[in-house]
Amino acid sequence: MKKIKTSPLLPQEFVVENISENEANIIAYPFEVGYAVSLAHPLRRFLLSSSQGYAPVAIKVEGAKHEFDSIRGMLEDISEFIINLKSIRFKLKNDETDAEVTYTFTGPKEIKGSDLSNEQVEIVTPDAFLATLNEDATLTFTLKIYQGIGFVPSEDIRDELDDGFIPLDAYFTPVRKATYEIDNVLVEDNPNFEKVIMNIVTDGQIGPVDAFKNALEVMYAQMAVFNSEISVAAPTTVERVDETPEIKKLMGRIEDLGLSARSFNCLDRSAVKFIGEIVMMSEADLKNVKNLGKKSYEEIVDKVAEYGFAVGADLSDEVVSAVKKKIEAE
């Protein structure tokens, strides 16, 4: 018979694995069966669709009337130039939400993303190639750069532009990849709890952890619509306790002590699961465990001593509080 519950287990562990500056794994566990995917999937959608980023929405090239034109002395035509421009990722400085920036280059020169950085704009893909100019070439162009979310096609921008500007498809999202895996994790000998591992890769406009935080904020904001008509109790924040080596040992299970079956069963039937619970007992409390005889008592005291502790040990208030919180969370 399954254990009867009145509420699902709350996940206690949250880990960030920084793989690189623009990639990280976000790990949380343990979840009840089915809960991990229920949270991970919408978070992935919000990461890809609601993360704020920057993109050029229009370009005006001196001497070019449309995207199929060409410029004297530039190897690429305008359409190829625009394709290359899409691989360059911009970030406006000083928290600006839009900017109009003009560049002028003379040949011979191979223009890269790093050449577009100035006091208004930071380029997060400095090695991206843009264009090649011959000796007699001069290239002047103006970009309209905006902050936004998701993808906006050029057709939606065309009517809002000044004469001479060519609309561009705007890829705002700074999240290049957001995937997740669901693994099983053991909780109290039950292997059916779940761990979610979310891998996030960004283009450098924003860090993966900040992108995850923004996705959470958007998710909470979307759900706030229900608060207007339905009174919902505010969720309790799960306090995570930093585990010192001492706390980790105290949170070891009584199985780790290698007790005889009789001693183990006495503790197990009294709902004693962790070594820390024995250490925090007084000698009198341990002796009063139901059906625990003298030999079993002495065995437990000896095994706890071998583990590095003593029954009734004088632990610091911080350690006692931390162990109690973790035991309550189990």
Score class of each variant (00 low, 15 high):
213 K>I: 15
202 T>Q: 07
230 I>P: 00
210 D>F: 02
228 S>K: 05
219 M>I: 04
222 Q>T: 12
218 V>R: 12
221 A>K: 13
193 F>S: 01
193 F>I: 02
210 D>A: 14
234 A>I: 11
224 A>Q: 12
228 S>Y: 03
221 A>W: 03
220 Y>N: 13
207 G>P: 04
232 V>D: 04
218 V>Y: 12
227 N>C: 01
199 N>E: 13
225 V>A: 01
196 V>S: 07
193 F>Y: 11
204 G>H: 06
222 Q>A: 12
198 M>D: 02
196 V>E: 02
193 F>W: 05
216 L>V: 15
216 L>S: 15
212 F>M: 15
197 I>K: 14
199 N>T: 15
195 K>A: 05
193 F>T: 01
223 M>F: 12
217 E>L: 13
224 A>M: 09
195 K>P: 04
198 M>T: 05
202 T>P: 14
232 V>S: 03
202 T>F: 09
223 M>Q: 04
226 F>R: 01
234 A>V: 11
197 I>G: 05
201 V>G: 08
207 G>K: 13
222 Q>N: 11
220 Y>T: 15
212 F>C: 06
211 A>R: 07
201 V>E: 15
194 E>G: 03
195 K>E: 14
210 D>M: 11
199 N>R: 14
233 A>T: 09
215 A>P: 03
219 M>F: 12
213 K>C: 10
202 T>S: 10
223 M>C: 08
197 I>Y: 06
234 A>Y: 06
202 T>H: 08
207 G>H: 10
210 D>T: 15
200 I>Y: 08
